[in-house]
């Protein structure tokens, strides 16, 4: 933590214009991603995780607008000229998407999809890129890489496709890899393999990883720090152990209680907290969790909480934080310190 973080998100707002009004998908989020560390981002579906990732990757639709700063190695991606940004995306920041069936080009062989970035961005020669592609496929655990290079995406299983996607993302040796729900489209046994693979390459390469998931179990054992998002805001952020062992924000607490024992082979549903997310076009004033929180008082709405240090490397934005050590249930952070 001595060095400057790879990525610093500062007061990021990403609002999307729709027919129903302006969706405040990300609304004033500040966050650091440290070098060679894995950060988990969790929260219910619709809490703005993907929009935040897309804002960092410059993938938002044209009808979206951002404010704030996204500093990558000190340079603000939101205001950098297009040409310079193109040098960063793909080469220094890469992304793995949710559905590997949709993220690969169905009519292009794996070889070209793997080598294209290297050839274009790094100027690697064809034969060198091919050799590198073979290495990458072995690194991500694709058997018989020679043959796989000649395959089209539909000839691979879902798990293999996601491995290929990871290989493509790693091709230009990025400093930061963003994986948005990388295993949600896969079945459970494959999920675990892919997640472990991500953690392994992150450590082996000394790369930074942002692992986004609606599923706490996905993030629990495989990240150093975790950020909890709710309705476009950050609720809590801190060392993964600390957040899972002693959640301080009421939302995180409820979320953990609603999650069956982590690291259990199942898709943990997060929807068990009564109520639903507030209307993203017209969020309530102050804390956004008020409608579903058991401990609401007037100061939750006005002036509302702000992010405060609640423990060593542990921040929460809650007016009446849960007492430290009030553990909801035995939860999986246990296998975390691998």
């Amino acid at each position: 933590m001595s060095a400057e973080p790879v990525l610093q998100v500062r007061n990021l707002r990403a609002h999307i214009g729709t027919a129903r009004g302006v969706v405040r998908a990300v609304d004033d989020v500040s966050l650091d991603v440290d070098r060679a560390q894995a950060l988990g981002v969790v929260g219910e579906s619709g809490s703005g995780k993907s929009v935040m990732a897309k804002a960092v990757m410059g993938l938002l639709p044209p009808r979206a607008a951002c404010s704030g700063e996204v500093l990558f190695e000190g340079r603000d991606l939101l205001s950098l000229p297009r040409k310079e940004r193109a040098q960063i995306w793909g080469k220094q920041i890469a992304m793995v998407f949710q559905d590997p069936g949709r993220s690969l080009n169905p009519v292009v062989r794996i070889e070209r999809q793997l080598t294209e970035g290297m050839r274009r961005l790094l100027g690697t020669s064809r034969s060198e890129a091919r050799g590198k592609a073979l290495e990458l496929l072995s690194e991500v655990g694709v058997p018989d890489p020679e043959r796989r290079l000649r395959n089209y995406p539909h000839e691979l299983s879902g798990g293999m496709r996601q491995r290929v996607m990871i290989a493509i993302a790693l091709a230009c040796e990025p400093d930061l890899l963003i994986a948005d729900e990388p295993t949600t489209a896969l079945d459970v046994t494959i999920q675990r393999q892919i997640l472990d693979l991500l953690r392994r390459v992150q450590r082996d390469r000394g790369m930074s990883l942002v692992l986004i998931s609606h599923d706490l179990a996905v993030v629990a054992g495989r990240t150093d720090r975790v950020a909890v998002m709710y309705a476009g805001r950050l609720a809590e952020v801190g060392a993964t152990r600390s957040v899972f062992d002693s959640p301080r924000h009421r939302y995180t607490h409820a979320l953990l209680e609603a999650t069956p024992a982590l690291d259990h082979e199942r898709n943990a549903p997060l929807r068990l907290i009564p109520g639903s997310l507030p209307d993203p076009t017209d969020p309530p004033p102050g804390c956004r969790f008020t409608a579903r929180c058991a401990q609401v008082e007037d100061d939750c709405r006005d002036p509302g909480p702000s992010m405060a240090l609640v423990g060593a490397d542990h921040y929460a934005a809650c007016t009446r934080p849960v007492a430290a050590g009030d553990v909801p249930l035995p939860v999986g952070g246990g296998s975390g310190g691998r």
């Binding site: 990757m57 410059g58 993938l59 040409k83 193109a86 040098q87 995306w89 793909g90 080469k91 992304m95 998407f97 559905d99 949709r102 993220s103 690969l104 080009n105 169905p106 009519v107 292009v108 999809q113 294209e116 970035g117 274009r120 961005l121």
Partner: peptide
Amino acid sequence: AREFVLAARNMGAGHRRILLKEILPN
């Protein structure tokens, strides 16, 4: 809207290249 098109654009591919090489074959 597919991810590989977004990724190509992100890596600085021009409109012509994306239309001809990524979208047209599909």
